[in-house]
Amino acid sequence: MMNGMEKVPSRRAQAFMRWMEANGLKTKRVAITSGVPQSTLASFVQGVSQSLKGETEEKIATAYETTVDAIFAGAINSQSKRQAPLVRIIGRVGADASGEVILSTGHETWDQAPPAFGTTSKSVALEVRGHSMHTFAEDGALIYFEEQKTAPDVDMLGYPCVVETEDGRVLVKRLLRGSAPGLYDLESIVGPTIRDVRLSWAAEILAVVPPRQARRIIVRAEDHAA
């Protein structure tokens, strides 16, 4: 009898599941991003429903700026190749003019995002919350940088960087030469420049992903098990 048969996902559903796995996605996140009900996606991947409507497939592909075949037929292109591991979003910045980073601590799971162009396996990200950095990164943007503990490099001078001061503050500032060797000025996007501070480390910003794109790609910690 049909009711006693094991439900097997269709080939298109299996391709869809491989695509989600390769991109660190769950049905809940795809549903939020695409506007397709999660119940529809769950039925599809569980084999209850053997197909999705063409317009539904198109809706998902459009939301992720790729093709229907890349998701549901396993076509290999630049959008469907297996990606590098997701990047951890380790904190927030932009709530006030200080440029201070509020680090996320004590987490077993992190908010995450796919790597951006130019990032490496050591890269991490900050999420911009607020409008104090609006000329550099808008509210909701992602700032990627290398998680390293190295001294400032002369090539970083004049550019926005993530830095840690000797007193333990982690900031996003434009790095400038100070009045003496080993001292640096930290220019704010808004607000006063911090003069002549010593730094424990500095990291060059590798990429900034605008808010609209960031909303599509962020995988929230609460979605990991969804």
Rank of each mutant, 00 (worst) to 15 (best):
S98P: 11
L126R: 03
I90E: 09
T109V: 14
G74Y: 00
H134T: 11
T105A: 12
R82C: 04
K122L: 12
L103E: 15
T120D: 14
S80C: 06
G118S: 06
N77V: 00
F72M: 03
V124F: 02
T105G: 02
R88F: 02
T119G: 01
A95T: 11
K81T: 11
F136A: 09
S104I: 12
A125F: 01
W110I: 04
A75C: 00
L86P: 03
I76T: 09
S132L: 00
F72Y: 13
G91I: 04
A113F: 04
T109I: 11
V68H: 01
V101D: 09
A75N: 01
G91Q: 07
Q79F: 12
T120Q: 08
I90F: 08
S123T: 15
S104G: 05
F72H: 05
E100M: 15
G94W: 06
A97Y: 09
G106T: 11
T66D: 07
G91A: 07
D69Y: 02
G106F: 11
S78Y: 08
A73E: 11
S132A: 15
A141Y: 08
I71V: 11
G118V: 08
F136E: 10
H134S: 15
G130E: 09
S132E: 07
K81D: 02
I71Y: 04
R92K: 13
S80I: 02
H131F: 11
G118W: 05
I102T: 15
I71C: 06
Q83F: 01
E127V: 06
Q112M: 15
T120R: 06
S98I: 07
P114Q: 13
R129E: 12
D139S: 14
H131P: 02
T105P: 00
H107T: 03
S104P: 00
T120F: 10
V101K: 10
T119H: 05
F136K: 06
A113T: 15
V87D: 00
G140E: 09
H134K: 11
T135G: 13
L103Q: 13
D96L: 09
I90R: 11
S104Y: 14
T135F: 12
H134R: 13
P114M: 08
A75T: 03
R82E: 14
A97G: 08
H107Q: 14
A75K: 10
